[in-house]
Design a protein around this nucleic acid. Structure first.
Lengths: 224, 224
DNA sequence: TACTGGGATCGTACACTGTACTATAGGGAG
DNA sequence: CTCCCTATAGTACAGTGTACGATCCCAGTA
C-alpha cells in the first residue's frame, strides 16, 4: 500500500463516481476506447481494479456515464437569442465536443438509455424550436434533422485523417490520389484535384450543410 | 477431427476469406458485435480458431472487410434516373442496410481506410451529382450533407427501441413519459403526448429530412 | 515409386480482459 | 468494547486476440 503511493499519479483524496468517470474519459481520449480497461483505469487512479465497482456497477454503466458527461459539455441553447443562432451555437458546440472525444459517437450506437444530460439537452432544444413558432410535429422533424446532420457529420469527420486545409491538400495529393486509378474513379479524381486547387478547407464544410438546413426550416415556422 | 464433423453447422467445402467474412457478419447480426470472437466465429465455420488467420491478418482486418461488404449492399445510383430519385433510392437503401447491420455504424468510427466498395459508392454518387449539373465544390458539399444526414439518422435510429407507430406509442406511454417529470421537461411531455395522439410513425421521419435537403439542394445546380 | 516442399489447418500458450467472490481495514454507534 | 457498515482490494475464473510451432495433405520432381 505504501509502495503503491509512490508512483500513483492522481491525487488520492478518495475515489468517487465523478472522479472515476472523468478519469475514464481522459484515458479514452488519450488511448482510445479500446485502451480503456478497468485495471488501467484503476491504475491511473492509484487504486485497485475492484475498487471501481463500488462506484460503478459494471463497465457498461461506466460507458453510459461517460457519454452522458460528454453530452453535458455540449452547449445548451439559451433563451434570448433567435432560434437560428441558438441552433448554430449548439451544433458547433456539439461538433467540437464530439471531435475531441471521438470514441463517444461509436459508443452511442449500442446504448439505448438517453441519460439525464441528453434529456436536458433535448428539452432545451425542443423548447427553443417551439418558442420560435414551430408546431409540435414540425419541431420533432427539425430535431431529428438537425441531430442527424450533426451526428452524421461528426461520425464522418472522426473517420477522416485531416482537419485543416493544409492537411487535406497533403493527404489528397500524397495518399488518396495515388490510390485512385483515373479510369476507374474519374469523378473522384476530378473532385480531388479541383478541391486542392481551390484550397478547400474541411473546417468550413460543416457550416454549409447547417446553414442550408436552417434556411430550409425557416419557412416551416407557423408564427413570427 | 471426425468428432468435430458431427456438429458443425456450416458446409465445410473449405474456408475462404469470403466465407469467413460473411459468417462474421451473420454472427454479428445475430449476437451483436461484442459476441463476435474469433473462437466463436471459427466454431460457426466448423474450423479451429487459428485457421481464420490464414484468410485474415487480424481481427481489425476482419472488421474492415465486414463493413466493406455492408457498403457493397447499399444500392448504387443508376445513371438514367433524375438525381433526386437516384439520391432518394440510395439513401433509403443505405438506411435499410445500416438498420439491418446495426453494428456497422459503430464500427465506422475507428477505421480510417475507405475500402473499395465505399470508394465505388462515392464515385457513383459524385458522378450522379456532377451529371445533374452541380459544380465540383457544390457536389462535395451535397455529398457531405447527404451522407451526414443518412449516417446520423441511422445512428439515432439504431439507438432507439421502436420502429413502428405502435411500438412508439407503447414505449412513449409506458416507458418514456413516466420518466419525464412534467415540471422539469414540459416541452418533451407536450411533444410526446402530441405525437402519440397524432399517431406519429417513426418510419416516415426519414423522408421528411431527406426531402427537405434535396429540395434545398435543387436550386444549387448550375445547369438543367 | 519415393522425396520434398509448401500451403492449409490447428493445439498450445501467453498476456490480458471483465467481474464474482471473499477478505480486510477502519471508523462510527450502541 | 463490540458490532456493523462502507471502502478498498486480492484472488480466481472464464473468455479474449494472437504468436509460435506442429501437423497433415497434396502437387511436383527425380
Amino acid at each position: 500500500m505504501s509502495a503503491r503511493e509512490e508512483h500513483q499519479v492522481a491525487s488520492d483524496a478518495g475515489l468517487s463516481k465523478q472522479r472515476v468517470v472523468v478519469e475514464a474519459i481522459r484515458l479514452a481520449d488519450r488511448e482510445g476506447v479500446d485502451g480503456l480497461s478497468m485495471r488501467r483505469l484503476a491504475g491511473a487512479l492509484g487504486a485497485g481494479a475492484m475498487s471501481l465497482y463500488h462506484y460503478v456497477a459494471s463497465k457498461e454503466e461506466l460507458l453510459d456515464a461517460m457519454i452522458d458527461i460528454v453530452f453535458e459539455q455540449i452547449e445548451i441553447p439559451r433563451e434570448e437569442t433567435d432560434w437560428q443562432s441558438a441552433m448554430r451555437r449548439r451544433a458547433a458546440s456539439a461538433r467540437q465536443v464530439l471531435a475531441s472525444h471521438p470514441w463517444a459517437i461509436g459508443l452511442m450506437e449500442s446504448r439505448t438509455s438517453p441519460g439525464p444530460a441528453n434529456l436536458r439537452h433535448r428539452e432545451a432544444v425542443t423548447a427553443c424550436l417551439r418558442r420560435a413558432g414551430f408546431p409540435v410535429v414540425m419541431a420533432t422533424h427539425a430535431n431529428w434533422l438537425l441531430d442527424s446532420y450533426v451526428y452524421g457529420f461528426a461520425l464522418q469527420q472522426t473517420s477522416l485523417p485531416f482537419d485543416t486545409a493544409g492537411e487535406f491538400a497533403n493527404m489528397t495529393e500524397n495518399v488518396f490520389l495515388p490510390q485512385l486509378p483515373p479510369d476507374e474513379f474519374p469523378y473522384l479524381n476530378e473532385s480531388a484535384a479541383a478541391l486542392v486547387a481551390a484550397g478547400y478547407d474541411p473546417a468550413e464544410e460543416f457550416t454549409f450543410g447547417l446553414d442550408l438546413v436552417l434556411a430550409a426550416l425557416e419557412p416551416l415556422r407557423s408564427s413570427a
